[in-house]
């Protein structure tokens, strides 16, 4: 209700204006206040719902065992300990798994996004026969559930062979590529990894929106197509590419589907967490001779989950804008 000054005249007081408008001003003001209040309430409730699982895990992971059974403790632990982290770290080989996951996630993200950038540029900037058909194919790779092709891929890589050549040299037996990561790298550089259709889509949207004149100027100066792409267009696309990289990185980090299918030979965080409850049970019964309660095991699952997502939260904290803005700039329209 700050008094505004218009051309040197002071506005009459709020109540005066309210009287003149026959109570309309007060009603409007009240309605807007009430709306703001409910908006705050709604946003707060939803934020709470989203953050609750994380906060809950954080509080549980810091508790000593006796705090778990104390019904007077709901959120804030009374006896804070980092033992859970230490034990979990040992059990899931945290340092090793962390490095492995980091390495594979970075590598896979770079391979996937590099391939998708090329493809997105092709779709966004060039006219060629059957372009619509190929773009429909991009939509198809988005909507085919990976599970539908996983049976075939699984068998294909389990008994890997190219026209019988491998069998010839390997005593009549096909090569087992299931434990190796090579098939997945192959799929990554050919845009068939996790949610790659989405990256192609986003990058195509972006490249299609770059002004034509940029390229034309480069062509007039005698740049080849590839050099134009590399030196003129790519620098423009850095923000979108970075955000695709971030998506590829975080989604690869938490992925268990492809990890189970292809990356079984590596110690990965997402895979380690899946078996943590049983491993903790074993550890306590064989090493210390103690039976662990369900709640105690759940506590370790929470701890492990937090340890897996902590690096992602860190990345998100610093690169939050990048994640969101890519979707905004690329528009995501069909």
């Amino acid at each position: 209700m700050s008094k505004q000054v218009i051309e040197g005249h002071q506005l009459p007081s709020f109540w005066e204006r309210n009287r003149r408008s026959h109570g309309y001003l007060l009603r409007r003001e009240a309605r807007s206040k009430a709306y703001k209040f409910f908006r705050f309430l709604l946003l707060f409730a939803i934020c709470f719902l989203i953050l609750h699982p994380i906060l809950d895990k954080l509080s549980v992971s810091l508790m000593e065992e006796r705090d778990l059974y104390d019904s007077s403790i709901t959120a804030i632990p009374r006896h804070v300990t980092l033992d859970n982290y230490r034990i979990t770290s040992e059990q899931i080989y945290y340092p090793k798994a962390l490095l492995n996951t980091l390495w594979i996630s970075v590598l896979v993200a770079v391979l996937q996004v590099a391939a998708c950038t090329l493809v997105g540029y092709g779709f966004g900037r060039f006219e060629f026969p059957l372009k619509k058909l190929w773009f429909a194919a991009v939509i198809l790779i988005i909507i085919v559930p990976p599970q539908t092709i996983s049976t075939s891929l699984y068998l294909r890589f389990r008994y890997f062979d190219i026209f019988g050549i491998v069998k010839l040299f390997n005593k009549g037996e096909a090569l087992n590529l299931r434990g190796s990561s090579i098939p997945y790298y192959l799929m990554s550089i050919t845009c068939m990894g996790l949610k790659n259709g989405l990256y192609i889509f986003m990058l195509r949207q972006f490249f299609a929106s770059v002004p034509q004149s940029l390229e034309e100027a480069a062509y007039v100066d005698g740049c080849s197509v590839f050099r134009t792409f590399w030196q003129v267009i790519l620098p423009e696309a850095v923000p979108v590419i970075v955000s695709c990289l971030l998506f590829a990185f975080v989604w690869q980090w938490t992925d268990t589907f492809y990890a189970r299918l292809f990356l079984g030979g590596n110690t990965l965080l997402s895979m380690q967490v899946s078996g943590i409850a049983d491993r903790i049970g074993n550890y306590f019964s064989t090493q210390l001779g103690i039976q662990t309660s369900l709640g105690r095991r759940q506590q370790f699952v929470s701890t492990a989950t937090l340890m897996v997502v902590a690096p992602l939260l860190l990345v998100y904290l610093f690169a939050q804008k990048s994640f969101v803005e890519s979707i905004s700039t690329s528009g995501m329209k069909m």
């Binding site: 090329l118 493809v119 779709f123 190929w134 991009v138 092709i149 075939s152 192959l186 050919t190 068939m192």
Partner: peptide, 21 residues
């Protein structure tokens, strides 16, 4: 050139999607 750029996708699409499908 357009086809050259989308070549990785075509290869992947045929080898790792159409065929397995």
């Amino acid at each position: 050139y357009g086809y050259l750029f989308i070549l990785p996708f075509i290869v992947g699409f045929l080898a790792f999607l159409v065929w397995p499908l």
